[in-house]
């Protein structure tokens, strides 16, 4: 590795030898023609340095570019560039340029059209969320309310029709001193005597007292029906269609107070019978 350096230090000590730095400068082309001639002359007497110089020249000559076998890369490079569409025919390039300009002009015209429409019809061209006018909401609410009112009205009418057998009972005063049952029917307190119960039964309303608790028919489907009455004041009343909903109620000082609503999954006799 240090052979060159060793040579140099050795050479510099020998008198009459051409300094290696001078040879380097000559090889670098940094000395004038006159100096080069002097070195060439001196080399005739310095055989070792001459041999070194010849060897160096030999190595440099071996690096000649022309000796290197080289593939022609022209086609390969141009083909790769064609993949990037770097070189396309002039006519096609013109078409591409025209096409790009047409696209740009189209986009510009579109934007101008939108801008024009925006000024004339702001609502038409606004892409963002638009606020809903208040009068639309008011109309919608009004219509909904009307629909709900009609619905309620029809249900009330239906309920009234189902209560028609009791209408006479609501109006007639009840004799005092007899055993009565008090129910709140249609927001009115109704007192029922045993005769009233019999009349209700006669009109088709199914009424059961505590003695009949365990024998409820499945077809009990009238509204506001006393289902069961216990001796301790506990009673069951059916306030809706069928037996879907029963209310557990209690009679206190002649007034029936609903204490609990019972939602039933089925209308079978067993379910009813399970109720206390």
């Amino acid at each position: 590795m240090n052979r060159g350096q060793d040579h140099e230090s050795f050479d510099e000590r020998i008198p009459g030898r051409i300094p290696e730095s001078l040879i380097d400068a000559a090889l670098d082309g940094e000395i004038c023609d006159r100096m080069q001639e002097e070195i060439a002359h001196a080399l005739q007497y310095d055989h070792e340095r001459r041999a070194e110089l010849l060897e160096t020249a030999d190595a440099v000559r071996a690096m000649n570019l022309d000796d290197i076998p080289m593939p022609d890369m022209q086609c390969a490079v141009l083909n790769r560039l064609d993949e990037h569409e770097r070189f396309i025919p002039r006519t096609m390039r013109r078409w591409v340029r025209t096409g790009r300009m047409a696209i740009a002009a189209g986009i510009l015209l579109g934007l101008m059209l939108v801008a024009g429409l925006q000024s004339v019809y702001p609502r038409l061209t606004t892409i963002g969320a638009q606020s809903t006018p208040v009068h639309d909401v008011a109309t919608a609410v009004e219509q909904d309310t009307q629909r709900v009112a009609e619905n309620v009205q029809s249900q009330v009418a239906q309920m009234r029709a189902s209560l028609s057998p009791l209408e006479g009972l609501l109006a007639a005063p009840k004799p005092s001193g007899t055993k009565t049952f008090t129910l709140t029917l249609n927001h009115q307190v109704v007192r029922l005597s045993e005769a009233d119960l019999a009349a209700l039964r006669a009109s088709g309303v199914m009424v059961r007292t505590d003695t009949e608790t365990n024998r409820f028919p499945a077809q009990l489907n009238r509204s506001l029906t006393l289902v069961s009455y216990g001796g301790d004041g506990q009673m069951l009343i059916n306030t809706h269609d069928g037996l879907r909903t029963l209310s557990r109620a209690k009679e206190t000082r002649g007034v029936v107070v609903v204490t609990e609503r019972v939602e039933l999954e089925s209308t079978s006799d067993e379910c009813i019978a399970d109720l206390p």
Partner: peptide, 13 residues
């Protein structure tokens, strides 16, 4: 350059 050239001469030989 100078060092490399000296080494190259020797190695090439």
């Amino acid at each position: 350059l100078h060092r490399g050239r000296r080494r190259l001469r020797v190695l090439f030989k």
